[in-house]
Design a protein around this nucleic acid. Structure first.
Lengths: 182, 182
DNA sequence: GTCTATACGAGGATAGAC
DNA sequence: GTCTATCCTCGTATAGAC
């Protein structure tokens, strides 16, 4: 069974995400990643051409989930129901298996900014925001849509010092996001 | 007149802020900063002990302005007027001479996160949010205060693709921030 | 007091041996 | 598929010219 290749690749991704989330992308060295797995730097380079490719491979997972949500939303007729559903689903996406990744992306925007995958993320984020409104809305409404999405980020990642459980903060931010779009 | 020492120091700060904002903190090397000023790396090291000290010196400027706003707000009695005034003043602060710095800090959170000055920024941000509410408000209200502040960031920095002038976006985000606290 | 010259270890990256 | 040897650039540090 040739399962090793995939195993090693996935192990690298797992450790890398962990370290990126802890120390940031630039703050994490390839040697750290390699040593945690008992390999050398060069061994890591067999599985990924560059350090950036490790990051990109991680983000693509999140991108796929975003794509799914955007295309689901596009099939629904514009309505208040769709708006609420997209917000709820995005909130769930942020707290699912890509939670750690989403948190890291929030803090490490500058590391992602100039990557091809960063451009894609921003594009999807804009599409998602557009699903919250009907077309040709004024600036303030479109701004509101973006803030509603960011509200979900804040509730999930940045509110730890506010007390309450993670679930309570998530629910509260979803509620605020809904109100923003009413 | 011994004005040179200060001049050089300030020149380094100016160029550094420019490059940090363009390429991020980790993406900017000391050689780039030095070369733009026609100096060597080592010359920069005469004026700043470390690269981090350059960053810290820049952020302290922003921190001072935050301090001023927080202490002004603390002297006002809690009221809807104070809430509105703090939001408006923070909006003005973000678009003033520290605009570029504020933008960079937004994107480069991971570079600042573990610095002493980063802890201070977060502390002031929390104090500012607390000025928007009266004490002992429920979680959702305190969350709303933080989102109101972030709304001003979004309007100032992240809305370029929405069209409209910078001023229009700023005004719209201030309006949304006010509504969030009503 | 200000800067040049130079060196060190660690980082990402590559070529090629096994 | 894994690793050695090597390269360049990075932040940092120090010695010493002016």
């Amino acid at each position: 069974m040739d399962q090793r290749r995939t195993d090693t690749r996935e192990q690298i991704q797992t450790i890398a995400l962990e370290l990126f989330a802890e120390q940031g992308y630039d703050g994490t060295s390839l040697r750290e990643i390699a040593e945690r797995l008992g390999m050398t730097k060069a061994a890591v380079y067999y599985h990924f051409k560059t350090k950036e490719e490790i990051l990109t491979s991680l983000i693509e997972d999140f991108l796929d989930q975003l794509d799914e949500l955007v295309s689901w939303g596009s099939e629904q007729p514009p309505s208040r129901q769709r708006c609420r559903a997209v917000l709820r689903r995005y909130s769930e996406l942020l707290s699912g298996r890509t939670a750690e990744l989403a948190r890291f992306m929030q803090e490490g925007q500058s590391a992602i900014r100039d990557l091809a995958v960063g451009v894609e993320i921003r594009k999807r984020f804009g599409q998602l925001a557009d699903l919250l409104t009907t077309p040709d809305q004024p600036l303030s409404t479109r701004l509101r849509a973006r803030i509603a999405l960011i509200t979900l980020h804040v509730g999930t990642f940045a509110g730890a010092e506010l007390g309450g459980s993670t679930q309570e903060r998530r629910d509260a931010s979803l509620q605020i996001a809904h109100e923003l779009m009413e």
